[in-house]
């Protein structure tokens, strides 16, 4: 690791000011991604601002609070395990709890924060190895994954510049639930729907979100979504645990008398961003539950998929994963 300056902020306003003041300064939350990448020298900040003590000034940052409209506000510093184990989350948004528990390991979930998880970076082999070129890490150097190893990379949302998968589980569930990210910058707070938060690589794979430098994520809000009590996260990976998704599906269904009234569908492990599939949702809504319907929705979800040499299997795997998740949710009795 290169040397850097370390400051432990206790006031969110200070933290924002310190980071905003300098391009080379980063927020440090759980550290499970940032410190990892600093060791690899993929990230080389000149200074880090430790935000782990901000809750002393602003306890909400570490709290999960029910909102008057039935939604939920999750502080950015809430640890992944606490969020997964939260009884309200387990009851009202099981898809989120399951997604969290399917990610990383017990130790990592105790460290990782909600804000940090949203911003974790791709596991593309080439991105994480500074001996190799990579458009995302060093714009303009090329993408060696496209003609190299790309089994773990994306089939949706790719561009000729980058095909890196967005690796997270939690964000997939949150995108499905229609979450909103609340951020605070030098110019004040703004709320960004999570579906608009992430950017596909296009010509600029180095830009992953609409977050501006110095903006601190303070919370994620989940809307009231009563039918999300019938929701599920299915993750498929190379071993039974402690591995990133090859494909995953987050699904919530509102079923009335065998007919789908409303649906939320998002896919993970196969796209350059946590992938909300409005196509699949449209295919589902208004129709009677059936295997054929689920299969149709899955076809729609993957309609634009582009395979690369090693990852063509992900297209069919993602379809089947989605069908599985839909099937499981459709068979749940409403809680």
């Amino acid at each position: 690791m290169r040397p850097f300056e370390y400051t432990a902020a206790t006031d969110p306003a200070d933290a924002v000011r310190l980071v905003a003041a300098n391009d080379g300064t980063r927020f440090l939350a759980g550290g499970t991604n940032l410190i990892d990448l600093m060791k690899l020298e993929v990230e080389t900040p000149r200074a880090v601002v430790d935000i782990n003590r901000l809750a002393r000034r602003e306890p909400a940052l570490e709290q999960v609070a029910e909102l008057p409209d039935g939604g939920l506000r999750i502080g950015a510093l809430v640890r992944n395990s606490d969020l997964a184990w939260n009884p309200v989350v387990q009851a009202r948004y099981p898809v989120l709890s399951e997604a969290l528990l399917a990610g990383a390991s017990g130790q990592l979930r105790n460290m990782a924060t909600t804000g940090g998880n949203l911003l974790q970076r791709t596991r593309c082999y080439y991105f994480r190895d500074t001996a190799m070129p990579c458009n995302k890490r060093e714009p303009g150097t090329g993408c060696p994954s496209i003609a190299g190893h790309n089994r773990i990379n994306a089939v949706l949302g790719t561009s000729p510049e980058c095909i890196a998968t967005s690796p997270g589980d939690m964000p997939v569930a949150m995108v499905a639930l229609g979450a909103t990210v609340h951020v605070r910058g030098p110019e004040g707070e703004r709320a960004i729907p999570l579906a608009d938060f992430y950017l596909v690589p296009g010509l600029h794979p180095e830009r992953e979100t609409v977050l501006r430098h110095g903006e601190l994520i303070v919370a994620v809000e989940l809307p009231a979504l009563p039918f999300a009590a019938r929701s599920h996260y299915r993750k498929v990976r190379d071993r039974a645990s402690y591995a990133f998704a090859l494909a995953s599906a987050a699904v919530a269904l509102d079923i009335h008398e065998g007919r789908i009234r409303d649906a939320r569908v998002a896919l993970g492990g196969i796209a350059t961003t946590p992938w909300r599939s409005f196509e699949a949702e449209r295919a589902l809504v208004g129709h009677a539950v059936s295997h054929t319907l689920f299969r149709t929705a899955a076809e729609r979800a993957l309609a634009g998929a582009v395979p690369y040499a090693e990852n063509a299997f992900k297209i069919e795997l993602a379809r089947r994963t989605l069908v599985r998740a839909l099937t499981i949710v459709s068979e749940m009795t409403a809680r």
Partner: peptide, 19 residues
Amino acid sequence: CTIHVDGRRQLACLILAVM
């Protein structure tokens, strides 16, 4: 490298001592 921080298991390789 698993250790406990305030009784919870965490990974010492991804924590800075100063934190």
